[in-house]
């Protein structure tokens, strides 16, 4: 993917660029808001990583102008530590995702992958398939190789998020946000608990494990 990184801190910018290049992405780095707007409007980008605080033009303004110009490239907004109100503002301005600095690189990479893959079609699809799994979003049913698997609503939602991710990594914080709506990390490991239950149900009868755990990063569906 071609990724535009607008970040004024040279160290952070280099850290992101290096990591994303290693993953095989083409990275363009800018340090000023007006430059970011210029490149975003003139070049094709698959994802834009936009810092909220940029010299010359702040990130939110860049974002609003982009959206006003009907450019709907997915934008991941970066912001400094924790203001609840900031997140709301960012999403209202048209950001697709939001990440608080400092972050683990794996978290950023997973979110960029998810944004890059976001297709309008997948939102209206009524069925998702992955390997032997078929999920019917209307009937709220999951079948593995034709056998119905009874899931609790929370487990269903968890699997849905994983399956929408395809073979991409979904991080723990992404699951907390998308399944529980939590923008904080509870001390109790509810993700792990529900994931192990989901796994047990999916893999009943010693079937092969369809969910892969990536230590300290997250989970992803395993192609068989």
């Amino acid at each position: 993917m071609q990724i535009l990184v607008a970040e004024d801190d040279a160290d952070t910018s280099a850290f992101i660029a290096k990591g994303l290049s290693e993953l095989g992405h083409l990275v363009l780095c800018v340090a000023r808001g007006d430059d970011a707007l210029h490149i975003a409007t003139t070049e094709h980008c698959d994802v834009i990583v936009l810092d909220r605080m940029l010299p010359a033009m702040d990130g939110l303004t860049v974002l609003r102008r982009l959206r006003a110009a009907k450019i709907d490239t997915p934008v991941l907004l970066l912001t400094a530590l924790g203001q609840i109100q900031d997140r709301v503002e960012g999403l209202e301005a048209g950001a697709d995702d939001y990440l608080v600095k400092p972050f683990a690189f794996s978290e950023l990479a997973a979110r960029i992958a998810a944004l890059g893959r976001r297709l309008p079609l997948s939102d209206v699809a009524t069925e998702i398939e992955f390997g032997p799994l078929r999920m019917d979003l209307l009937k709220r049913e999951v079948r593995r190789a034709g056998t119905l698997i009874a899931l609790q609503p929370r487990e269903f939602r968890l699997l849905e998020v994983l399956m929408r991710g395809g073979d991409r990594v979904v991080t723990r914080t992404m699951l907390l946000e998308q399944v529980w709506g939590f923008h904080f990390d509870p001390r109790t490991n509810i993700v792990e608990t529900h994931m192990s239950r989901l796994r047990a149900k999916l893999n009943e009868g010693d079937a092969e494990d369809l969910i892969e755990t990536l230590r300290r990063v997250g989970y992803r569906m395993r192609g068989i």
């Binding site: 609790q152 529980w180 490991n189 509810i190 608990t193």
Partner: peptide, 8 residues
């Protein structure tokens, strides 16, 4: 409660 019961 439903999310926490299994964790508990």
């Amino acid at each position: 409660a439903e999310s926490y019961a299994p964790a508990a």
